[in-house]
Simulated assay, not measured.
Amino acid sequence: MLRIFSLTLCLCAGCASVPDLPSVDSFPVPPPPDYAEQQHWAALPTTDDAADRTPSDTIPDGQATAKADVFFVHPTIYRDTREGNAYWNASLADAELNEAVDESTILNQASVFNAAGKVYAPRYRQANLSVFYDEGAAVKQRALDTAYTDVLAAFDHYLTHFNEGRPIILAAHSQGTLHTIRLLQDRFVGTALHPQLVAAYLVGMPVRKDEFADIPVCTEPTQTGCFVSWRTYREDYVPSAQRDDPAIAVVNPLSWTTSTDRAPIALNRGGVLYNYDGGIKPELVWAEIRGAFLYTNKPKFFGNIFFRSQNYHVADYNFFWMNVRENAVGRVGEF
């Protein structure tokens, strides 16, 4: 149960070591994926995978009858450099890493959307976590560009072979959000595909309010053709003035508006702990927008005395699991 919170604590406290990876002058990358092969997808609606799961028998997987698709881009899971995977970008032949992706982000995040659409989640050569430390700009960009080429290739394969003109939800977290921002710019802004966009859930990274020329911030719960974004912190977190940028979009995942009024805990339809431990937790946290961030109370659960981080990044989806799920269904219905 505490694994998700322990990971958050470690990352935000800076206790994760920066791997000794190849220099910018020596930038090997693992082989690219072939998205015609099932093994290069973490989730497909035609396979038995973690995106099919739900935290309760009373909450069904609705992909079989869903009228929309969900293209989900997972966050950074690649943090180390085990023998055979000593790259800035992850090798898709790393079975241990693939399993970690499936058992964390696909189970806890991608599954949120299996009532709203058929879930497609590509494996990709994700950049190592170290690119988000104080690395050289060239190294960071080369690693992220490599990862994005895979995400773009996966999306184009999905469009060609799976979509068949269906409405599309884009959803992502953290590093996945960075790639999905680029994907929206490259494939949706000002294109013929734009009318198929139900909404984009761009969670865990700052997104500017004016990021897209024709995709606005969602300000109503059933608005379509728009995007939502938030980054979650404990109520006593005090950001630097530089980070608290008023140009950053924040949508409250309990009210689904940009109002700065606190959305009370009674609106929280249910969050989940890591791997659904204990099932749905109704009224887990309240939520309030302050500046560029979303703030919540410290959630109550057995063992929370050890949960001391002010940064709730890893729980951006988990704290609002049922609210995100029902919102995605509502936007599809409105579409």
Rank of each mutant, 00 (worst) to 15 (best):
C10T: 15
L7Q: 12
P216R: 14
I77P: 00
Q185F: 02
T180F: 07
V272S: 04
R125D: 06
S104P: 04
E96F: 03
S229C: 06
D277T: 13
F319R: 02
D49H: 04
T149N: 07
D94K: 07
T54C: 07
D150P: 03
L183H: 12
P216A: 14
N268L: 02
V24F: 05
W286P: 14
E326W: 00
H40N: 15
P264E: 04
Q310P: 01
I77M: 10
T260V: 10
Y35K: 04
D214N: 06
P122H: 11
S104I: 01
S56V: 08
N318C: 13
R262F: 01
P195M: 07
L144F: 01
V251Q: 08
L44P: 03
Y274V: 03
A154N: 03
D245C: 05
P33W: 14
I305G: 12
N89T: 06
N323K: 08
P19E: 13
Y120M: 02
R308G: 15
P22H: 06
P30S: 12
D214E: 04
A110Y: 12
V29N: 06
A86F: 02
A16K: 03
R53D: 11
Q310D: 10
Q175A: 14
V29M: 10
P221T: 03
D48Q: 11
G176W: 08
V198A: 07
N275L: 01
Q310E: 09
V24Q: 12
R187S: 02
A315V: 14
T258L: 09
A90F: 05
S130V: 03
H173Q: 10
L284D: 04
S104Y: 09
S91H: 09
K281F: 08
P60Y: 00
V272K: 06
R142W: 01
A95E: 14
G333T: 11
V285G: 07
F212E: 07
V228W: 14
T260M: 01
K281M: 10
R331H: 13
F188R: 12
F227G: 00
Y133F: 13
V18G: 05
A241H: 09
P75C: 06
T81M: 14
G303P: 07
F212W: 04
V73G: 02
G330H: 04
V332Y: 08
V112P: 04
G333C: 03
L107V: 08
V131P: 04
F319N: 08
R187G: 04
K209L: 11
F27D: 01
N275R: 15
F293A: 05
H179L: 15
